[in-house]
Design a protein around this nucleic acid. Structure first.
Lengths: 158, 158
DNA sequence: CTGGTATCGTTGCAATTGCAACAAATGTCA
DNA sequence: TGACATTTGTTGCAATTGCAACGATACCAG
């Protein structure tokens, strides 16, 4: 039965959560999921290139490129050519982008907390363990798409 | 950090698994995820309408409609008008569809087993529990999209 | 009956997507 | 230096998507 098929179950849960979350940044800021990811990433890593974003947030280059373009048009992000390497862009949040993010991040975090609140601390830890184990199956699978650098676990032993 | 944000982590894992799985039914049978879901559902529930599929496999009506059309053109599915209600379609797998599914289902199941094999029985049970708890958060959230009927747990107490 | 309402499947359409091709810039190595 | 490969960001394009509107059928109240 499809409803018991693990890939299907994960896909359904994921889509449901993503759609719910997109109401927050969509309604409040009119941005897409790609734009949301780019902005959140920029909040941590200022002055990054398109490729770095692409490597870090699980979006292909064209999507990042277009997301950055839209955000630039909206005045939320600044694109500057790098001085040393003319190919690279130096992308960062504008003040407007920062203030917008500051407005969206709290409800987004609140929603995450609401999800996590349904789980005990043990379950939360277990979920991380389980997800990491599933990732590792695919890490050893040459046909699976490789994992983004930043999605590798940092807390565990290395 | 984005990499620690639960909705993002679930989305990344889900997409990675889905993409890997789609290699199986895509390369072997040239069908899309929507078509895959429709066929798997039909394997269990013969003689169903578009709306029933839509209700059961987390695809909107147009997607189901188009998936069924493509599968019909490919000879994998038969569309018959219902006798009693002229609006309804009676959709079922053809023999060719059944044999195709019989060829794809084993590697798909094997892949699921490969994922599950990375988890202990306790972790597998815990994963189900956790996913159900996350679903329940959204079940009580009027802004979240409702869950498909068939995705509700059947084993638990009712 | 009959007018209004609900349901079913399909279609239109704008927007997004994924992938490949591309120009520009850099790196490499003889 | 100069030919060639690599990298970066963008663009083209075909296919898919999501949502709303649609015609057709069935239901239902008076």
């Amino acid at each position: 039965m499809l409803a018991e098929f693990l890939p299907y179950r994960i896909a359904v849960l994921s889509e449901r959560i993503s759609r719910r979350l997109s109401l927050i940044y969509g309604a409040e800021a009119g941005i897409s999921m790609a734009e949301w990811r780019v902005m959140v990433h920029l909040a941590r890593c200022q002055e990054v290139s398109v490729r770095e974003i692409h490597d870090c947030v699980n979006l292909d280059k064209p999507r990042v490129s277009r997301a950055v373009s839209r955000l630039t048009e909206a005045g939320l992000v600044a694109k500057t050519g790098s001085a040393t390497d003319q190919r690279l862009l130096s992308i960062s949040l504008t003040e407007e982008g920062q203030s917008l993010l500051a407005r969206i991040l709290p409800p987004a975090r609140a929603y995450e907390r609401r999800l996590l609140h349904a789980l005990s601390p043990e379950e939360q830890a277990m979920l991380s363990t389980i997800m990491e184990k599933l990732h590792r199956v695919m890490d050893t699978d040459p046909d699976a798409r490789p994992r983004s650098r930043l999605d590798l676990p940092r807390d565990a032993a290395e």
